[in-house]
Design a binder for these strands. Structure first.
Length: 475
RNA sequence: GGCGACAUCGCCAAGUGGUAAGGCAAGGGUCUGCAAAAUCCUCAUUCCCCGGUUCGAAUCCGGGUGUCGCCUCCA
């Protein structure tokens, strides 16, 4: 039984999907005003693994990830670069898709853009207004948090505490510091849409609620038969811990106000990445973009790094830790490389070795304990070396389970690639022949010269029982 | 001021009542003309400190100490 830690209840709970054959997830996506950093990357990648695991278990997965393409920061960036927000947004949406792909993350089933939903949002805000949850002043529309029962349940806060909160900056138009803006009046020169409250744009907290509902409608995900579930629900709504408050809290508040829905049954939040013990964030400026890290490290290295610790813990980032992950991942790759070099292919269509599979699933079922799951893969790798009789089965199992966490992407192509250039291969084989001649004649100096010079060119020679093998240093 | 999390080998990191997974690094062996790579073996009687509960605690309780997060845009 899969157990998931639910922020809503602060407990590990048995996962019971709304539909027993399908899982619907909504994962908060990027605000597209910059390249995303490795902290964002952790969330995107981890929830990709969650999705893969559900698929591995036989669920059909609806994976929705929004793109926030209208927002203060985008407007700010557009001003700085003296261009308009569409250009900024589309540039970074494209970059987002590229970097996601670079990390080996599967594309979401649906990626709604906030600007495509402005009219839906206006309709939604009108409904909230009609039900008496809002107030408006001079063109801004606010949501009155105090009118929602259970406000603060997700983040474990109560309204009185929020009142006492020392750091809530007073917005003169707000009746209460915890209220949030649903519709923002446009300032001159800002992007704007017509609305019953004048020209303006939606506040950030509204888009996910509206898009989530609409998508379930469109996708024909009907309400659950029993009427105890009053509205469309996702199984999972996910994002980083920083989104718990106020973002997700406010989403729930709106859903409650609108249709007494809690939006999703399970709320999952991943921990932060720290730089030298301190939170990494755009506002602190101490961040690394995934784009830059991908220039130096392969996706699987980064993946290993992310998954080596439980997703709810915070995790440090530095170059040593990536180097460790690189070495670790290469170790995992080794038995596969060896197998492939011997057999020229990988085993197909077997069943996973039972014990390893069980151990792996036990780890993943325990609130996605990827660190424990990786340990199972390493044990499996070790076992492949030792085993004479069941190598095929074990190799197959390693490949299959590894893919659940996103490892071994295009592995056979990757191994083959190095040898594809026929001329290179001929030339290097020629040099190897010469070197062997020198070795026969015990002219070590010349033999070593060939080996050393090739090494400088990035080609490594290995003397083995079956003769001299070579490979490119980075493959 | 309010709320919360965490502290396990040199480093990273699982384990939440039954006697310390895994990875990196390190040391040793095999292989080699020497290397490199690979491979095999070794590597925490002990889990921040002090008390308590228990037949039994890294795990539960109480009290310290330390680190971090949220309460503001943020994954």
């Amino acid at each position: 039984m899969l157990k998931i830690y639910n922020t809503l209840t602060n407990k590990k709970e048995d996962f019971v999907p709304i539909n027993h054959r399908a899982v619907r997830m909504y994962v908060c996506g990027p605000t597209t005003y910059d390249y995303f950093h490795i902290g964002n990357g952790r969330a995107f990648l981890f929830f990709d693994v969650v999705r893969r695991y559900f698929q591995y278990k036989g669920f059909k997965v609806l994976y929705v990830q929004n793109l926030t393409d209208i927002d203060d920061k985008i407007i700010q960036k557009a001003k700085e670069e003296k261009t308009d927000i569409d250009k900024i947004a589309s540039k970074y949406i494209r970059a987002f898709q590229e970097d996601i792909k670079g990390l080996g993350i599967k594309r979401a089933s649906i990626q709604p853009k906030a600007t495509d939903y402005i009219h839906h949002m206006i309709k939604f805000i009108k409904r909230l207004e009609h039900k008496g949850f809002t107030y408006s002043k001079t063109g801004d529309v606010y949501f009155s948090v105090g009118k929602v029962k259970d406000y603060g349940k997700l983040s474990g806060k109560n309204i009185d505490q929020l009142k006492a909160g020392a750091r809530v900056i007073a917005d003169m138009n707000k009746e209460f510091a915890g209220d949030f803006v649903l519709w923002k009046k446009a300032k001159p020169g800002e992007p704007q849409w017509d609305s019953p409250w004048g020209k303006g744009r939606p506040g950030w907290h509204t888009e996910c609620v509206v898009m989530a509902k609409d998508i379930l409608d469109k996708e024909n995900y009907s309400r659950r038969d029993d009427s105890s579930n009053p509205a469309e629900l996702f199984d999972i709504h996910a994002g980083g811990v920083d989104l718990i408050f106020p973002h997700h809290e406010n989403e729930i508040a709106q859903a409650r106000a609108d249709s007494n829905s809690q939006l999703a049954n399970y709320w999952i939040h991943n921990g932060f990445i720290n730089i030298e013990g301190e939170k990494m964030s755009k506002s602190l400026g101490n961040f690394f973009t995934v784009r830059d890290i991908l220039k130096k490290y392969q996706a699987e290295t980064i993946r290993h790094y992310y998954l080596s610790k439980h997703y709810r813990s915070s995790i440090d980032f530095n170059t040593e830790i990536l180097r460790d992950s690189q070495n670790a991942y290469n170790k995992l790759l080794q038995p596969l490389k060896e197998y492939y070099r011997d057999k020229g292919t990988f085993p197909q269509k077997l069943k996973c070795e039972r014990l390893f599979k069980e151990e792996f699933c036990l780890a993943m079922d325990d609130d996605f304990n990827t660190a424990r799951a990786l340990a199972v893969l390493f044990e499996l790798g070790k076992e492949i070396h030792k085993s004479n009789t069941s190598k095929d089965l074990l190799v197959y199992t390693l490949l299959k389970l590894g893919k659940v966490v996103g490892f071994f992407r295009n592995i056979s192509a990757h191994i083959k690639e190095a040898k594809q250039d026929v001329y290179t291969e001929k030339l290097i084989n020629m040099l190897i022949t010469y070197r062997n001649e020198f070795k026969q004649e015990r002219k070590w100096i010349y033999a070593d010269m060939i080996r050393d010079d090739l090494a400088k060119a990035g080609i490594v020679l290995q003397d083995t029982h079956e003769g001299t093998k070579w490979y490119f240093k980075d493959s």
